[in-house]
Amino acid sequence: MSLDNYLYLSAILFTIGAVGVVVRRNAIVVFMCIELMLNAANLSLVTFARINGTLDGQVIAFFTMVVAACEVVVGLAIIVTIYRSRRSASIDDASLLKR
């Protein structure tokens, strides 16, 4: 087996996450798909670290995890705020700027 297989897996998971962001309507599921995309990117970073024989890729993957945690905290707080005022977690309902 070649190390490229990890990169293929990462690309596939990233694509699935991207489809989920576009297709699903529940804001929480959309957030989970963003998490999936970040995780797929992390897998490729870890694989590149192993290919290059340095730990830099792992350090950057660690930074990505911290950024993902920040993103989840703020994003879920926004979802809760929207839910509190509109009683809906659907991304189609938050369309005030359109009208």
Binding site: Y6, L9, L43, V46, Q58, A61, M65
Partner: peptide
């Protein structure tokens, strides 16, 4: 599990 298998134990 993939991370640990790839030598990224901490991650």
């Amino acid at each position: 599990i993939f991370y640990i298998a790839q030598g990224a134990v901490f991650l």
